Simulated scan of single mutants.
Amino acid sequence: MSQSTRREVFDNDMLMSCEEIMRDVCQSFNAELREFNGEGDHVHLLVHYPPKIALSKLVNSLKSVSSRYRRAEYTGRINQIGTGAVFWSPSYSAGSCGGPPRSIVKDYIDNQKRPA
């Protein structure tokens, strides 16, 4: 199985905890996590952040801090699934939502198939 293959690691409890961690990280950047949801193998965030913040630094912090906390709190589950040394994929997708109304982006995030 290649390293880039997604693994179903998240359950609802992990996603709730991950949201809390990511909300704290955003606050430390003077950013606001406006929407959060996820599926078994990824998360979606709608973040309002100041233009002076480099998006890559924010994403790096979101991934590294949440990975550290996820591994500490859910070691058995993560090891059982076999994510290896890497919790998050090294890539991410980011887009600006200046075009569509925020409600459309919010609906998209809210309608993810969140695991039970």
Rank of each mutant, 00 (worst) to 15 (best):
Q3A: 12
T83V: 14
R70H: 08
L45T: 02
P101F: 02
T5F: 09
K52H: 14
Q3S: 14
R34D: 15
P90M: 07
Y69V: 14
L15V: 05
N37R: 07
C26A: 01
F10K: 01
S56G: 01
E39P: 11
I78S: 02
R77V: 15
N12V: 11
R102P: 10
K113Y: 04
T83H: 03
I109P: 01
M16P: 02
N60E: 01
A85T: 10
H44D: 01
R70T: 09
Q3N: 14
P101E: 09
S4M: 15
R68E: 03
L45R: 05
Y108R: 00
S61R: 11
S93G: 05
V59W: 00
N12R: 11
D13I: 01
E32D: 07
K63E: 06
I104P: 03
I53E: 00
A72W: 06
I53G: 01
E8W: 15
S4A: 09
D13E: 07
K106M: 13
V47D: 00
E39M: 15
C26P: 00
R34N: 11
V43M: 12
C97Q: 10
T75A: 14
L45I: 05
D110S: 15
N79Y: 04
R7Q: 13
V59I: 06
E35T: 13
H44G: 08
Q27T: 04
K52W: 11
V65L: 05
T83P: 04
L62K: 02
H44L: 10
M1Y: 10
S2I: 13
D110Q: 13
K113W: 05
P100V: 08
S56H: 11
I21G: 12
M16F: 05
S96A: 11
M16A: 11
I109R: 14
V43N: 09
S28V: 06
I81F: 02
I81D: 02
I78A: 02
C18G: 03
G84K: 14
V43C: 10
G98W: 06
E39R: 13
C18W: 02
T75G: 14
R68D: 06
E73G: 09
H42N: 15
D41I: 11
V105I: 14
V105L: 15
V43I: 10
I81C: 08
H44S: 08
D41H: 13
Y74P: 01
E8C: 06
A72Y: 03
D24F: 09
A72Q: 10
F36R: 15
S56Y: 00
L33N: 08
R68L: 13
A116D: 01
L15T: 02
N37S: 04
